[in-house]
Design a binder for these strands. Structure first.
Lengths: 351, 351
DNA sequence: CCTAAGATG
DNA sequence: CATCGTAGG
């Protein structure tokens, strides 16, 4: 029942790129020779971040430039944003693997708002995008030809709706589309990339809708997705990245009291998130910052919510507990604009 | 059957404005006291153009500014456009009455592209707009509060479709909406303003549609509209302004050969225009410039048509023959952007 | 308030 | 290739 696909270039041909590890089709799990990788090793995750990550500390910063503030801007000034990670894992090891996730609310609009600049600036090993709202055929060339990444796309049958992507510097061992359910899988909500030591999932969980009209669909998804993830977790650890479309606790949204019967903060949806935490998954951000308030990843475009930081934490990294000690940091990049969500980034040390 | 309406402020309240001639409601054709009108007289049309019309000849023209060219621009640099009329009527009289017409292709979008600047720059006595695509309620305040004009709006039952407007500095004696046909009149295609010496009509003729799917509707309109106009013409001369949605002759479009079975250049539509000329109406532009080529009022947004001046002359002034000697000039303002049509302006001398 | 698709031109 | 309404969020 599970739609399983061979590793293929889903979109277009990728020119030779020294940053992308090649895997010969046919050799099921054989690893191609790694090139240009610092500390090249046998492991997929050894695609260690290059020294070019992070910004060059130029002491001469233009003082005329206004500090980026949390306003309803549409574009981002990337020059003052720090992308490097200074924190270390429990074991004191530096981050060498970066996963980033962003609900872009329309890939094509997002590209016009410096999406590509973000990709280059973040320089993640795996990048997960949600709500691409774009069929394969309509993907702009500027995104299908981005250097250094294998790119996988799941788009909805219904054009301009939902859709996720997963970019990886290293070619995955395998890529799965969907969660094994016909109805949900035609909406392009899930891509699973298998690497040697873990799975990475880019997911866009169904919204419960205005007046909760699609809450039942959402709860059905919750069950199916949980089973899907648990099956993977039996094989190797899982890194779930994406828009879970729920604020788990009161701390995770600005107005918990008034949203208890609204999509994204119903008890049913919150329970779905709790289920993950009860089943051996870790909400990396909340684990790292259990009491940190006012940290959101989504702001409605309405009522200038973002300028007032009236928001919701809907985007998460949920990782198998046995990966927890690998975590160096999880950053909510709330100074980055281009969508009604902001990107989140997970820094890991993979040994 | 004819829907006849009293002269009313259709939109909002107009504050006292010395440029608008007031007419007491109730006094059917009584003329309010004219104020601030050069050569104030008994006639409606004495709203003579002010000396402020036309641009002040500033000898210091910025030489850095690029000359406006016929590119697919979205906005207009008004600083180099000449709005005054130097030509005179047959009798050698200067223009003292200006009528302008523009298919704005969406009033709200047009306002964002300096529509108001045009209104002020042209400073017409009567301004006719077509394809406003805006219901009364959604009209932006910036247009409903424009100084110096009485404003009349006919909008389609179908929201965001068709719609015309007529602005007049002088309050008309009467304003009619539609052409006396239920079906057509719910589409907001015609406003008739009656002045002392003539009628002015703002009209948006139905498009025959892709593959001519609405050609029959169009031809029905042609008959009804002709009858409507002829009835008016029995009373006093008529000035028809607007998008007739037809290129009359081969000279009136770039590609006559390939468009003979396309909307806007079918024989049936062309005959409709000929009918007007056969019935005592004058196409003022063609009368003035019988052999002038490459003068169009519409360019498809597709294929960069405007930058190549691949266009159609669809917008006309059709005036009763007995007004023909009053014409000073008819200008096609093809350097003005903000729509897929450009404005046209008729300069008259009204005695 | 945003995006995107669909209808219309 | 623009405008608009609508669905979806």
């Amino acid at each position: 029942r599970q739609k399983k696909q061979k590793v293929t270039e889903v979109v277009g041909d990728q020119e030779e790129d020294e940053e992308v590890e090649k895997e010969k089709p046919g050799t099921k799990r054989g690893r191609g020779k790694q090139t240009n990788l610092k500390e090249a090793s046998d492991s997929d995750e050894s695609a260690v971040s290059k020294p070019k990550r992070g910004r060059k500390k130029e002491d001469e910063v233009e003082k005329t430039k206004p500090k980026p503030t949390l306003m309803n801007k549409t574009d981002t000034d990337y020059s003052n944003i720090e992308f490097s990670c200074t924190k270390t894992s429990k074991d004191g090891d530096e981050a060498n693997y970066v996963v980033s996730s962003w609900n872009v609310d329309g890939l094509r609009a997002w590209l016009k708002k410096s999406g590509l600049t973000y990709i280059q600036a973040e320089n993640a090993d795996v990048l997960c995008l949600q709500e691409t709202k774009c069929s394969q055929e309509k993907l702009p060339e500027e995104i299908t030809t981005v250097d250094g990444y294998k790119k996988y796309w799941a788009s909805s049958k219904k054009d301009g709706y939902a859709g996720v992507a997963l970019f990886s510097k290293v070619m995955p061992i395998d890529v799965k589309y969907g969660i094994g359910n016909e109805d949900h899988d035609e909406e392009g909500r899930c891509i699973t990339a298998e690497f040697k030591k873990f799975f990475v999932i880019s997911v866009y969980v169904p919204n419960a809708g205005r007046k909760l009209v699609t809450l039942s669909k959402r709860l059905e998804w919750n069950d199916l997705f949980m089973k899907f993830v648990q099956d993977l977790d039996k094989i190797k650890p899982v890194i779930i990245c994406g828009d879970m479309n729920v604020a788990h606790s009161e701390i995770d949204l600005s107005n918990p009291k008034t949203n208890k019967r609204n999509a994204g903060f119903t008890q049913e949806e919150r329970d779905g998130m709790s289920d993950f935490l009860d089943c051996g998954f870790v909400d990396t951000y909340r684990k790292l910052y259990p009491d940190k308030e006012n940290m959101y990843t989504f702001w409605s475009y309405m009522n200038n919510a973002r300028s007032k930081n009236v928001g919701w934490r809907l985007d998460y990294f949920l990782i198998s507990e046995r990966l927890a000690n690998s975590v160096c940091d999880n950053v909510i990049r709330n100074t980055i604009y281009g969508s009604d969500h902001c990107p989140i980034t997970l820094f890991l040390n993979i040994k």
